[in-house]
Amino acid sequence: MTEPVQIVTPHLVVSDANAALEFYKKALGATETLRMPAEDGKRLMHSEIHVNGARIFVMDDFPEHRGSHGVDAVFPPDQIKGTSVTMHLEVENCDAAVKRAKDAGAAVTLEPWDSFWGDRYARIMDPFGHSWSFAHRLPAKG
């Protein structure tokens, strides 16, 4: 039996994919499942990690290919000075997930708090400029 394909897979572009993979392993408990080096032997053309059962692709920036070979203008967050996307992870313990990420080098951008929608919720920025949020469901009141 084949594993079902994830319908949407985030594809993160970073300035140092090798370092990013190591960070995601420490900070998110990611499992690396694939690494494809580029011809230069330094950058990664493609890699794949699994985080909480979700598949995520990570690759280095290849500015020399922007606008060629059908590649759109995709930039790592450090080059555009921000990001328009936050990756969200449902976790067992939001506070523990934030601490783990912070200890690995992430910046906490929103400390864990009990949200009005019923989750313990927080956000971090990874060292490569990608935003992540963590949440776990709070016990029902009443």
Score class of each variant (00 low, 15 high):
R66F: 01
D16W: 12
P127I: 09
P10N: 11
G29A: 05
I56C: 03
G29D: 09
F75Q: 06
S133H: 10
F62N: 01
T31H: 06
K141M: 13
I56A: 04
R137Q: 14
S47N: 06
A135C: 12
D40I: 01
D61M: 02
N93A: 08
T2I: 09
V58A: 03
D72E: 04
P10C: 10
I56L: 12
S131K: 12
E64M: 02
W132S: 03
K81P: 00
H65N: 01
T31N: 04
L28G: 04
A140E: 14
M87I: 15
G105Y: 15
R137L: 14
D40N: 01
G67R: 04
T33Q: 03
H50W: 12
T9V: 15
L12V: 10
H69N: 02
K26H: 11
V108R: 11
A17I: 10
I56F: 12
H65T: 05
F23N: 09
F116A: 11
E3K: 13
G70L: 07
F134N: 04
F116I: 13
V14S: 04
A17S: 12
M59F: 09
V51D: 05
E90L: 05
G67E: 00
E92N: 08
Y121M: 08
G105K: 14
A140L: 13
L89Q: 07
A17H: 08
H65C: 00
T9R: 14
P112N: 08
L28N: 08
A19F: 03
R120M: 07
D119H: 12
N18D: 10
W132V: 10
V14H: 08
V13F: 15
V108S: 06
Y24L: 08
D119A: 11
V58R: 05
D40F: 00
M87L: 15
G118A: 04
H69F: 14
K42A: 02
N93Y: 07
E3C: 02
T109A: 09
A17P: 03
G53Y: 13
D78R: 02
